[in-house]
Amino acid sequence: MSETCNESSCSSCSVEGCSSRKAADMKEPANQYSHIKHVIGVVSGKGGVGKSLVTSELAVKLHRQGYKVGVLDADITGPSIPKVFGIHEKAVGNDKGVFPAQTSEGIKIISVNLMLDNEEDPVIWRGPVIAGVVKQFWNEVIWGDLDYLLVDMPPGTGDVPLTVFQSLPVDGVIIVTSPQELVEMIVKKAYNMAKMMNVPVLGLVQNMSYLLCPDCGRMIYIYGEGKGEQTAKELSIPSYASLPIDPSIAALCDAGKIEEFDHPYLDAMVKYLSSLN
């Protein structure tokens, strides 16, 4: 039977996951050599909607604006950030902590794939171990000076999102969705979890919204016209972008060359994040 919290004021509550516990008392300290201005989570209610793609594109865009950017790959069992950036070397460390890998442009990356002997080996760990690794990525990694640390979350509302929301000083989350009606329903789960954990929802990005016909330029709605803007309106959050299905971007990801990405799709989201400074 699951434990239930019945306290009206949960300052001393011991129930894991109770949203009323004092968040400030639960935050993990960052590594002493890390100085991070903003922590932004990228979340979704389910997998396969392009969360890692959005995280990577935002990192590239922010870096081009002159900001110092890092990406914490919190998708421990399905990491894809190193592949997208073309990073295959192992993370190294010393008695002060672990150094993140750096992309060719200088974006800092940490991921479990940078610590495995073989990056294709599966990570077969239980939830508490996975949650512990995410904490280590925060308090044992020497991030140095960063303007933005983007946290690429696994899908759903399980151990890792809970750990990130409780342990890291998250300034807000971006919800990534796709046009299918089922996904729109699950978006509300991610939104409601963030609200329960007192984490601001900064806005919504809809991926795979349409395909541009290569002959006439007409928008083809393969999955039907999405309800991203409608959902955002219902939740009273901004809808910052509707990303197309773009084969050229898929090719960049497959080749580990996402830093060559050069499209205006996320400009509105980047402009908003820039306003936080």
Results as ranks from 00 to 15, higher is better:
Leu53Gly: 06
Ser178Gly: 02
Val49Ala: 07
Ala59Phe: 13
Ile110Val: 15
Glu57Trp: 01
Lys108Thr: 12
Val141Tyr: 10
Ile174Asp: 11
Ala91His: 08
Pro154Tyr: 15
Ser275Gly: 10
Gly256Met: 06
Asn198Gly: 02
Leu182Lys: 10
Phe137His: 13
Gly217Ile: 14
Met115Trp: 09
Lys68Ile: 00
Asp246Pro: 00
Ile222Ser: 11
His38Gly: 03
Ile237Asp: 01
Arg21Val: 05
Glu260Trp: 00
Gly228His: 03
Ala232Tyr: 06
Ala24Ile: 06
Asp25Val: 08
Pro155Phe: 08
Ile258Ala: 05
Thr103Glu: 10
Glu28Asp: 10
Trp138Asn: 12
Ile130Val: 13
Asn139Ser: 11
Glu3Thr: 07
Pro169Gly: 03
Asp262Ile: 06
Glu105Met: 15
Phe261Leu: 03
Gly93Gln: 07
Pro264Thr: 03
Asp75Val: 04
Pro179Val: 04
Val183Gln: 12
Gly226Tyr: 14
Thr77Ala: 01
Thr103Phe: 09
Gly156His: 04
Lys22Gly: 08
Pro122Thr: 10
Pro244Gly: 01
Glu7Ala: 07
Lys195Asn: 03
Ser20Cys: 03
Ser11Cys: 10
Ile76Tyr: 05
Pro200Gly: 07
Asp215Ser: 14
Gly144Ile: 04
Gln32Tyr: 03
Asp25Tyr: 01
Lys233Thr: 14
Asp159Trp: 11
Lys135Tyr: 03
Ser242Ala: 09
Arg218Asn: 10
Leu72Ser: 06
Ser248Glu: 06
Asp121Trp: 05
Ser19Gln: 11
Glu184Lys: 14
Thr157Ile: 14
Val49Leu: 12
Met153Tyr: 13
Asp147His: 11
Ile81Gly: 13
Val84Ile: 15
Gln230Arg: 03
Ala251Ser: 10
Leu212Glu: 14
Ala59Tyr: 13
Ile186Val: 05
Arg64Ser: 01
Met193Cys: 05
Leu212Phe: 07
Glu184Gly: 15
Pro82Asp: 15
Pro155Ile: 09
Pro82Leu: 15
Val69Gly: 06
Gln65Cys: 14
Glu229Phe: 09
Gly17Gln: 12
Val98Ala: 01
Pro122Arg: 09
Asp171Tyr: 00
Gly70Ala: 13
Arg21Pro: 00
Asn198Lys: 09
Val43Asn: 00
Ser19Cys: 09
Ser11Gly: 08
Asp215Glu: 14
Glu225Ser: 14
Asn94Thr: 06
Gly45Leu: 08
Ala268Asp: 09
Tyr148Asp: 08
Lys83Tyr: 08
Cys10Met: 03
Tyr191Lys: 01
Gln230His: 04
Cys253Ala: 07
Ser236Asn: 05
Ser80Gln: 09
Phe99Val: 02
Ile40Trp: 04
Glu229Val: 15
Val112His: 00
Lys233Arg: 15
His63Ser: 10
Ser80Leu: 06
Met197Gln: 02
Gly48Tyr: 03
Ala101Pro: 15
Gly132Leu: 06
Lys27Ile: 03
Asp267Arg: 01
Met26Leu: 15
Leu116Ile: 00
Asp246Asn: 05
Glu229Gly: 15
Glu28Cys: 10
Phe261Asp: 09
Gly78Leu: 04
Lys83Met: 06
Val60Trp: 00
Thr177Cys: 08
Lys27Ala: 03
Pro264Tyr: 00
Lys189Thr: 13
Gly132Ser: 13
Leu235Val: 02
Leu235Trp: 01
Val160Cys: 08
Asp121Lys: 04
Ser167Lys: 08
